[in-house]
Design a protein around this nucleic acid. Sequence first.
DNA 1: CTCGTGACTCCCC
DNA 2: AGGGGAGCCACGA
Length: 115
Amino acid sequence: MKLEKDSPIDFYQRVYDVVRQIPYGKVTTYGLIARHLGSPQAARMVGWAMNQSHSQENYVPAHRVVNRNGMLSGKHHFNGEHVMEDLLMSEEIAVKNDCVVNFEKHLWNPGKCLE
DNA sequence: CTCGTGACTCCCC
DNA sequence: AGGGGAGCCACGA
């Protein structure tokens, strides 16, 4: 989906849009999403967006978003300590020590199917 | 309006 | 190899 500069979509709204496009069994990183949005250094904003994601009407698979190391940095922000890990496990994604096993293998590049 | 903070990342020492 | 600083943008106090 191509976003025009006139698009009335907020930055974090775009983040949600990208995150929702992450296919089953795939994960991506904050930095990748930020880069896709045109601000490689704004990865923190992606995290901020995820923090607010639970308030969104539409479901946002935040558990598919991890840091550049494949570590579940935001697992503490879920309702339970192991919710994020459990969700990933249910998608055939192995998690060990709060890190995604074969992270690169499950990595999904935003924009890969776009444009 | 200014300051501090954050589910991040990169660069430099 | 590991720690520290800067950059990014939004939001609450």
